[in-house]
Each structure stands twice: as structure tokens, then as C-alpha cells.
Simulated scan of single mutants.
Amino acid sequence: MGQRPVDSGGSGTNPRSGRQETEEERADRQWGDLLQELRVAQTGVQILFGFLLAVVFQPRFADLSTVDRNIYVVTVMLGSATAAALIGPVSYHRLLTGRRMKPQTVTWASRLTKLGLGLLFCTMCSTLLLILRVALHNVAALWLVGGMALWFLVCWFVFPLWAIARDNGRRSDDGRRSTGGGEAPDAADPGPRP
């Protein structure tokens, strides 16, 4: 995000994607991609948040211990913060539409989305803790939530970071092979001199 095309005429190949597009075209494409991602996350957050809001009106809520009520309050606050972060990009886009700030909008919307995913992770773990404490009434709830938290981290963060690391390793291997030596080419080196 935010990289300028190669030539000064405003169009060129994006070194990261290999696409021939202007900065505005790239921002439009990235915005469309981000909207698709947000649709998935927002639906889940809205369902989860609706469930959380309904819990307090259930007859058994009065029977919850003080600890469970505190977990519930924290969970509802996390759910609210998650909804705000994942719906925020829509408001950001709407307020900046027509101001020729699409690249900046995509950057900030992406940051809000990442924050929202982190908050969603916390909300999911807190929700699981509340439900499993009520269902099991023992320490097994903590172990189960810990296991699921680890699984969320692996699926949401470890796998993507692993893919990035593998891609970076592949690119550096390709660079070493293309130069015929053991070192990757220096980006600042202009190449052979006449």
C-alpha cells in the first residue's frame, strides 16, 4: 500500500503486484478487496454482538457470579470496540469520498481493520471464557479457551506471517540465483558500469 508507480507519468508496474496501474487504480482495487474482507468480519461481529446484548435479558443472568458478570461486561465492551473498528472504515470512506484521498483512505481503513481483527480475537476469547465458565464450572474452561486462542492466533496471524516469510525467502533465493552469487542484489547498486 502507498507505493507509487515506477514511471513519473503516473502509471507503471507496481513492484509488489506486477500490475500496470496508477496509484488511484491501485487504491480502488485495494478498497474493493478490503470491502470484501470487511463484509465477512462485520457479519460475524454483528451476530456475536447481538448475542451478547441479549444475554443480559435472560433469566439465568441473575444467577451469574460476580466474576462472570465482570467477564460479561468486559466482553460487551470488547464487542462494542470491535464493531466500531470494523465499521469505522465505512464511515471513513463515506466522509472522505470525493476529496481525492482514496490512497489515504485505504491505508487508514486497513489499519482500522487490523485493529478490529485484534479486538475480535479478544472478544471471541472473552465470549468463550464466559460461556465455558457457565457451562463447565471448572478450570477446564481456561484450558479450552487457551487452546482456542492459540488456534485463532495460528489461523489469523501465524499462517499469513509464515506465508510472507516463505515468499520473502523465495524472492531472496531468486535474487541470489539471478546474480549468480551468494548475495542478493543491492537495490541501491545501479548495476554494471560501462
Score class of each variant (00 low, 15 high):
residue 94 R to T: 14
residue 119 L to T: 00
residue 156 W to D: 09
residue 141 A to W: 10
residue 94 R to H: 13
residue 114 K to T: 09
residue 161 L to K: 12
residue 127 T to N: 01
residue 82 T to L: 02
residue 157 F to G: 07
residue 184 A to E: 15
residue 112 L to P: 11
residue 21 E to V: 04
residue 176 R to A: 13
residue 140 A to T: 15
residue 32 G to W: 00
residue 157 F to D: 05
residue 182 G to Y: 07
residue 164 I to P: 12
residue 66 T to E: 13
residue 175 G to Y: 14
residue 144 L to F: 07
residue 97 T to N: 05
residue 179 T to F: 09
residue 87 I to N: 03
residue 57 F to N: 05
residue 169 G to D: 15
residue 181 G to H: 13
residue 48 L to K: 03
residue 45 V to W: 03
residue 150 L to W: 13
residue 35 L to Y: 01
residue 64 L to F: 02
residue 189 D to N: 15
residue 108 W to A: 15
residue 49 F to D: 01
residue 99 R to M: 13
residue 135 A to Y: 00
residue 120 L to N: 03
residue 159 F to K: 12
residue 86 L to W: 01
residue 61 F to C: 06
residue 107 T to C: 07
residue 99 R to A: 11
residue 39 R to Y: 05
residue 160 P to A: 12
residue 45 V to H: 00
residue 71 I to V: 15
residue 187 A to Q: 10
residue 58 Q to P: 00
residue 133 R to V: 00
residue 112 L to I: 09
residue 151 W to Q: 01
residue 35 L to E: 10
residue 16 R to H: 13
residue 179 T to G: 11
residue 121 F to E: 04
residue 83 A to L: 09
residue 54 A to V: 07
residue 60 R to N: 10
residue 58 Q to H: 04
residue 116 G to W: 09
residue 37 E to W: 08
residue 10 G to H: 11
residue 131 I to D: 02
residue 169 G to W: 14
residue 128 L to T: 03
residue 102 K to E: 11
residue 157 F to C: 09
residue 98 G to N: 01
residue 23 E to T: 08
residue 137 H to P: 01
residue 154 V to F: 15
residue 49 F to M: 12
residue 119 L to P: 02
residue 102 K to Q: 06
residue 98 G to S: 07
residue 21 E to M: 04
residue 48 L to G: 09
residue 99 R to G: 05
residue 174 D to W: 07
residue 98 G to E: 08
residue 134 V to A: 08
residue 89 P to T: 09
residue 116 G to V: 00
residue 183 E to W: 12
residue 17 S to W: 04
residue 179 T to V: 12
residue 147 G to P: 01
residue 84 A to W: 03
residue 83 A to Y: 08
residue 111 R to N: 08
residue 59 P to Y: 07
residue 39 R to E: 05
residue 150 L to S: 05
residue 21 E to S: 00
residue 175 G to N: 15
residue 76 V to A: 05
